Every structure is written in structure tokens, then in C-alpha cells.
Amino acid sequence: MKAIKTEIPGVVLLEPEVFGDARGYFMERFSQRRFDELVGPVRFVQDNESKSRYGVVRGLHFQKGEYAQAKLVSVVRGRVLDVAVDIRRGSPTFGRHVAALLDGENKRQLFIPRGFAHGFAVLSDEAVFQYKCDNYYAPGSEGGIAWDDPALAIDWRLPAGEILLSEKDRRHPKLADAPELFEYDRP
């Protein structure tokens, strides 16, 4: 596995080594030892999976306070545009985002540290999306940012009329109006 730096320090694209032949392929999806070498020590405690159809946009989500989460995300089947937005006030990259194409073919993973909002858009007929979290989900600590906030300038690569959202995702505030975000810990 190799790490590919992104435009925002701490957000890391991971590319596994895939061994294929006429029978199929084998890859190591996750190794704590290798992850720690490439990214740093993160203890994951929960794995989640979702299945979505074309046009679905999920996000931009985060967990607040003591329930903040770092995530390691990947796609088992299908293709998504995965997005991480820096929502750490005082950060030199506050309000900027990283977007990565993840799919069942490239098998890439994106690591999103705490202090980021996360979302994805399904670009294939269907997508099975998996993510590891370093903290347990707490419904009372959910936060969100509007997926279509013009200040974020995210190109979701979907026609506006084909985007499918949950009712909750329709109501998230713009970044400038978000009541509770994160503070940047200067190194």
C-alpha cells in the first residue's frame, strides 16, 4: 500500500497493492501496522457500510465534540466522488476540500481526520460504500454542512436535476452559518 498526499495535510489517499491473475485478485484492504506507518496511529472501533443508487449525495456530515470521528472510506462496488471539507476554524485550509474518485476497480481509500465534514456522490448505477470510524456513532452529536454551499465550490459531477438527498441533508446550514465546528490545533 502507498500513501498519496492531498492538497490538505492530514487527508491521505491510500492505494493498495493488488495481486491479480486469471482467477481474480487478492489485496490487503487494511493493516493496522501499515496504516500507522503511512498515516499515523488511529484506532478504529466501528465499521459501517451503505448501499446507494446513482445520483445520491450523502453529506456533508460530521460528529461533534467528544464524538468527533476520523474515517477511512472505500468503495467495494460502484464509483463515487468522495469529499472531505476542512471545518477547523483557524486552519490555513478552512473551507477547502479534497475530492477523490473511489471505485471498486481502483480500490483506493481516503483517510479523513477529525475536524472534517465528509460526503460522497454516487456516479455509478449503484455503489457499496464502506468506512471505518475511530469513534462510535452518537446521534445527538451529528453535524452537517450544506452539500451545495457556493462558498465550498464542490463539483459533485452530477447534473443538478439528478441529485437525490435525504430530508436531513437538505436542511444543513452553509459553512458560514454552522453553529458548531472545530478549532484548529496549531502544530
Rank of each mutant, 00 (worst) to 15 (best):
V83N: 03
V83Y: 00
A84I: 03
A84H: 03
D86T: 15
R88A: 05
R88D: 01
R88Y: 02
R88V: 04
G90V: 04
G90C: 06
G90I: 01
S91I: 01
S91K: 02
P92M: 13
P92W: 12
T93D: 00
F94Y: 15
F94G: 02
F94Q: 01
H97V: 03
H97N: 09
H97G: 03
V98L: 03
V98T: 07
V98Y: 05
A100S: 14
L101A: 11
L102Q: 04
L102T: 07
D103E: 12
D103P: 09
D103T: 13
E105C: 08
E105W: 11
N106R: 12
N106Y: 10
K107I: 09
K107S: 13
R108Q: 10
R108W: 07
R108Y: 07
Q109Y: 13
Q109N: 09
L110V: 12
L110E: 00
L110M: 15
L110C: 01
F111T: 01
F111S: 02
I112E: 12
I112V: 15
I112T: 14
I112H: 12
P113M: 14
P113Y: 06
P113G: 08
R114Q: 15
R114E: 15
G115K: 08
F116T: 01
A117H: 06
G119R: 08
G119T: 04
G119Q: 12
F120C: 07
F120P: 07
A121N: 09
V122P: 05
L123H: 00
L123C: 05
L123I: 06
S124H: 06
D125W: 06
E126H: 11
E126V: 15
E126A: 11
A127V: 13
A127E: 08
V128D: 06
F129P: 03
F129W: 09
Q130P: 00
Q130L: 15
Y131W: 15
Y131Q: 07
K132C: 05
K132N: 09
C133V: 14
C133H: 00
D134L: 11
D134M: 09
D134N: 14
N135L: 02
N135F: 00
Y136T: 04
Y137F: 15
Y137T: 03
Y137K: 02
Y137H: 11
A138L: 08
A138M: 10
A138V: 10
P139I: 08
